[in-house]
Write a protein that binds this DNA or RNA. Sequence first.
RNA 1: GGGCGAUUAGCUCAGUGGUAGAGCGCUUCGUUCACAUCGAAGAUGUCGGCGGUUCGAACCCGUCAUCGCCCA
Length: 965
Amino acid sequence: MEKTFDAARAEAEIADLWDAKNAFAAGTNAGPDAKPFCILLPPPNVTGSLHMGHAFNHTLMDILARWHRMRGDDVLWQPGLDHAGIATQMVVERQLAAAGNIGRRDMGREAFVAKVWEWKGKSGGTILDQCRRLGDSFDLSRNAFTMSGAPGAPAGEEGNFHDAVLKAFVSLYDKGLIYRGKRLVNWDPHFETAISDLEVEQVEEKGSLWRLRYPLENGATYEHPIEFDAEGKPTAYETRDYLVVATTRPETMLGDTGVAVNPDDPRYTHLIGRSVRLPLVGRSIPIVADAYADPTKGTGAVKITPAHDFNDWEVGKRAGLRVINVMGTRAQIALKDNADFWDGIDGSDALAGLDGMDRYEARDAIVTLAHDEGWLDGIDAEPHMVPHGDRSKVAIEPLLTDQWFVKTEELAEKAMDAVRSDKTRILPERDEKTFFHWMENIEPWCISRQLWWGHQIPVWYGPEIDSEGKVVPGAVRAFCASTEQEVLKKAQEFYGASIPISFSREEGALREHVPPAAYGVDSDGTLGWTELDRDPDVLDTWFSSGIWPIGTMGWPENTPELAKYFPTSVLVTGFDIIFFWVARMMMMQLELTGKVPFKDVYIHALVRDEKGKKMSKSLGNVLDPIELIDEFGADAVRFTLTAMAAMGRDLKLSRDRIAGYRNFGTKLWNAARFAEMNDCRPVAGFDPASVTLTANKWIVGETGRVRETLDAALDAYRFNDAANVLYAHVWGNVCDWYVELAKPLFQDAAAAEETRATMAWVLDQCLILLHPLMPFITEALWGQIAARPKLLVHTDWPSYGAELVDAAADAEMGWIVALIEEIRSVRAQMHVPAGAKVPLIQLDLGPDQAAALERDRALVARLARIERFETAAEAPKGAVTLTVRGATFCLPLADVIDIAAERERLGKAADKLAKEAAGLKAKLGNPAFVAKAPEDVVDENRARLGAAEEELGILRAAQARLASL
RNA sequence: GGGCGAUUAGCUCAGUGGUAGAGCGCUUCGUUCACAUCGAAGAUGUCGGCGGUUCGAACCCGUCAUCGCCCA
């Protein structure tokens, strides 16, 4: 064997080996009555590449999958990709532009979607190859895609996900849980689509607060307070014929339809009910009372633009104000042909100049006009939060449009019930609170997107007809079904079997659905013929990923997978998509199947850089998991992430830490090398309970304990505990102690055979127990150590436990280890050369200790570098005394002893003991403690006091001897 | 403004009522036949402050301070 593990070479070989054996196929290694264990990979974006967050998320899932597989469960780890509507459309559009292609609008919908599929086939899903580097053991033969089976999907992309999404939509639509409505939505002017609340990020910007003077109508004036006394009472007034409003968005003033003041604001109450004349526009708009106006902010008077602000929309509704939209889909000022706007006013040259301007150009222009025309009161710098699209990074614009919404209130109630009744557990508990907080305040979910890459909404429109069969001009009738045949059937039922109906193949308007011009009305006003026009919008990506659990298992068909693996066992995911994904999956699965999608949800935190900063490309602090794997090996990266995965806390990743766990792999590797050099080969039928030597019994017992602790940790998703118990066992128990203890035993003919067999067994157990965390190095060693019937990935998980612990052997090893450590410590403090061998003199020894020393003399001799064992009644002059539970020894170091150092050592040890004894004495002297504390705690304290006092006595004697020297 | 959380060794962090821990870093010593990606020994803590509950508090409760994150 080499001195170190060649991760790069071995990992590739092992990955090929697993592939060749199809090692991760669902159900592999399942026992006869196997329990299903199913875990869903949160589908990464098809555009994505593996980042640290994935690496963390996947590592945890892979540990669970491998652990359950080895335990003989029927494991399905379901992988797949998300079509990621906006993100993917963005990537492909950018590429088309870079290649000098025509834009998507010129290309047309069908051609563009074909381009996206082409891109997906070439460069989509590189992330899945990267997952392989990490060791992800998902079943790639079941790889799913949220757009599989959609119209235009090329060969190889068949699948039923598209059907499932449409059926889910139709099902919710038929239940009245999906509706279309004209509402103010978050509009992304870059992508020209609506987005949901969750896709909006608030970004603080340095902005200004502009104060604008709106003249009072009919020459009215009022007294505005300008000076105040110490109590805040006005002492001076000025006469104003205008009202000053403060705004962060002067450009929206074109759409103002009112001014609000607080009903309790004495400055303005007398103005309520009067009107101001909107500058530039010339519209007369009312001054209304609304608590939304905050007297402490700005001037206390706020302009109301119901069409362009969510708060103003509410105020407008309460006050019955008009809604006048003054912007287009690219957030440009849109006044031309805007009937609403021109209603009740006359044009002006200034307005004509503003038409078509970008919103920010318009802002500057309007402020300049205000200044020139004298209605700019002033400008204050004020930072404020501006909503931005999370993909486009441009400021979103509230816009009044027709969109599709999911009624989330009822669905949320069911999801909350499932969590309250523990049908689904959310861990850690804190995130359950977050879940409830959001669900209780849930808003309707806007699911329509004005994009092309996605599931087109399965709704077709035709003309509305009244009860007498007459066409209602301008009204629209919607038909929802998952196929054209079904739509046709529904339409035919509605309009009558004799009406010729066909489908319009033209691309409809982008958002506003008007009844198709292409229909005929007979002379009696009834419908003669019609075309049906499909809604051009697509569904929010999260609508389709919302049915990921059932969609990947063949729903709505009643497949064997659904029967077996659904509801799934556990969902492992980051806190950032609790609302986007987890909550929505809960709602949709419950509504569509009546079942929760998963029994447990384990929410993990974010991977940050070593300074605690979020990793981001712009900060340049991104650690690329693939680079780290190249440098340190996948096992080291995985183990690091696992060890740092304390529940609910962000983890700060540093290269030092990864290097440390790379060293851990090397340590394991060298332990195996040691075993090989000493001819330790796995013995068939080896029974760990049958060993006879203390050291062997001890390590066997430790292994049993580790198995139990490890399983308990994984069972509770305490991944860091799992990593730490393994680390401490392999490095501490096995490498530091057992390997060293074995060396003298190998020299002893009577002990060698059993020890070799035990060593081989212990190492095998280390490989098995470590495999879920460090799959590559353990699989490599497993194959290297011996020919095996099965790969390690399929080796049965052990069931032994603490019954392997032999209390006597445990106590004896504990004592021997303490003795060795004490001797080493004294040697180091007395500056005994590391290589020098010294005699050990036993002064006072209990019977158990004497027996132990007799049995394990060779171990002590080697590990503490003792040249011979002697017995004496009293310590010789210049000897250093040492105490180990129930025994007193000394080291005759007359030649080398440093009296000052020894005095210091004894003094320090005695002080520490005296302090401890005093504390214990005080505790035991407290009657309340003795009366109320549990008996075993009291006993334990008594025992500790006894031991401390005894040892203290010995140290005092040693101090006295030293003083007499 | 509302909600959630954090504060423990130089650093990064475990630790849910009974002897304060790990890794890294640091100091000293050491290449004894698995491993220098190593070994041995060592130093370092009013567990953020104050108050309370308790026989007993890093842990439970209250409060203050500081710092995060999410939502407005």
